[in-house]
Amino acid sequence: MSWSPLLPAAALLFTWAAQAAPHRTQRAASPPPAAAVSYAGREDAQALGRAIAAAQGLDPDWVLRALAQARFQASITRLVMPPPAGTAKNWSAYRARMVDAARATEGLRFWQANERWLSQAEARWGVPPEMVVAIVGIETYYGRIRGNFRVLDALATLSLDFPSGRSDRSGFYRDELAAFLTWCHAEQRDPTSVKGSYAGAIGLPQFMPSSIRRYAIDGDGDGHIDLEHNPADVVSSVARYFAEFGWEKGLPTHYGVQAPTDTSARATLLAPDIQPSFSAQRMTELGAVLDEAARAHAGPLALVELQNGDAAPSYVAGTRNFWVVTRYNWSSYYAMAVIDLAREIKRLRPPPPQPVASAPLQ
């Protein structure tokens, strides 16, 4: 998984992306509690609850009652661990899992069922409908796979018993637990009733609680934000998220490119990773062969490498919009899967009807 402002479910399927996460100091190993033990009697849980209540302006008794119902889940501490060392990245295999005819067909149905909200979101934020639809498809297969963990359990477990053996992210999850309880209080939701991924991501677009608080929007004006059941809120929230990170209307996500054969030049272009940092002219000077559209591109580009196991890597020249897609999940593989699924869904969509020319007046 990658540690983006969101922690989407699709990231959890592709966990080797976490290798790019910043290093954090490891915590000393401590014996984990038994599976499904309640946090009700834990002094550290009560201290965390009081701190959350004070910071968020919540009733301390309400917060402590909620945390007393949280349970440690050993399976969550296993699922959050990185893959075995040496796991090879393979774009072709990942794409085959995430971009297929069945998912594209479901995406077309989602588009047709929610055309009103997608059109409104595009008009307001400039994000194409197919990109929003593809995010929901990659994240949860349009709601089919959204996680069945109690979010309260997931966030409490990762806040209070984050496993040793990987970079400690317990502080991140404490912040998410605070955001979750604040959201539940504002929406008058029972914290024990909300289900999500083992990392605490919620709903069709798999927003983490802090992202619900920061970016989610009431798309149909009913006074509530419901990312679990309301497509209007789902569509509006995903589009707004892209816009907040700088999505530029009409800008392609990427162009075709052949990487330089010189290893030093290729390393120079790959050093900034997915951050667009080079002009088309500079990429050409370093030996990259750009397609015609890329050569005419005025903004910065990034050489994006997608490894294919033992086969030769694939490359694209990513634009600022490619980088925006990676803000949803800090993985170029994830972003490329979203982009390819969006293209497949749009290809299935029937062209709009052409206006019928009226006969000339006699």
Score class of each variant (00 low, 15 high):
38 S>H: 05
162 F>G: 08
241 Y>A: 04
165 G>N: 11
203 G>S: 04
280 A>W: 07
77 T>F: 04
23 H>D: 10
61 D>V: 08
312 A>C: 03
316 V>F: 12
324 V>M: 10
50 R>Y: 01
125 W>M: 03
279 S>E: 06
113 A>N: 14
179 A>R: 08
132 V>T: 15
301 L>R: 08
301 L>K: 06
210 S>V: 06
9 A>W: 00
156 A>R: 01
326 T>Q: 12
280 A>L: 07
5 P>Q: 10
148 N>W: 01
243 A>R: 14
146 R>Y: 07
283 M>N: 07
159 S>D: 06
105 T>F: 00
78 R>Q: 15
125 W>E: 10
17 A>W: 06
149 F>Q: 10
53 A>H: 01
255 Y>C: 03
241 Y>K: 05
161 D>F: 07
105 T>P: 00
132 V>M: 10
295 R>F: 05
14 F>M: 15
149 F>K: 06
345 I>H: 08
153 D>I: 03
347 R>F: 06
224 H>K: 15
333 Y>S: 07
161 D>P: 05
311 A>S: 14
119 S>A: 14
342 A>Q: 11
34 A>G: 14
169 R>P: 02
258 Q>L: 14
54 A>G: 02
148 N>K: 05
319 T>M: 02
140 T>R: 04
141 Y>G: 02
5 P>K: 11
46 Q>T: 05
31 P>N: 04
65 R>V: 01
183 W>Q: 08
178 A>G: 06
195 K>F: 12
311 A>K: 13
100 D>H: 15
224 H>C: 02
36 A>H: 13
2 S>M: 02
245 F>Q: 11
266 R>Q: 12
158 L>V: 02
319 T>G: 01
333 Y>D: 13
295 R>E: 12
201 A>Y: 03
124 R>E: 14
121 A>H: 02
313 P>V: 12
81 M>F: 01
346 K>H: 12
55 A>N: 10
40 A>E: 11
40 A>Y: 00
67 L>S: 00
19 Q>N: 14
190 D>S: 04
71 R>I: 02
145 I>W: 08
102 A>E: 15
19 Q>C: 00
16 W>I: 13
82 P>S: 08
317 A>K: 04
247 W>Q: 10
50 R>S: 09
178 A>C: 04
356 V>E: 14
259 A>Q: 05
116 R>E: 13
187 E>I: 01
7 L>R: 14
58 L>D: 06
186 A>I: 00
309 G>M: 10
213 R>P: 04
125 W>G: 04
321 N>Q: 06
75 S>Q: 09
147 G>W: 05
21 A>S: 15
278 F>H: 10
328 Y>G: 12
183 W>H: 09
110 F>S: 01
12 L>Y: 05
79 L>Q: 14
96 A>G: 07
135 I>V: 15
214 R>N: 14
187 E>Q: 15
302 A>F: 10
268 T>M: 13
328 Y>L: 13
236 S>A: 15
301 L>T: 07
111 W>F: 12
85 A>T: 05
28 A>H: 06
20 A>N: 14
146 R>S: 11
163 P>R: 12
43 E>D: 13
288 A>H: 09
251 L>F: 03
151 V>R: 02
36 A>V: 02
133 V>K: 10
233 D>Y: 07
307 Q>L: 13
85 A>R: 09
126 G>H: 07
54 A>P: 01
306 L>F: 14
348 L>C: 07
6 L>M: 11
224 H>N: 09
151 V>W: 04
24 R>Q: 13
362 Q>F: 11
88 A>W: 00
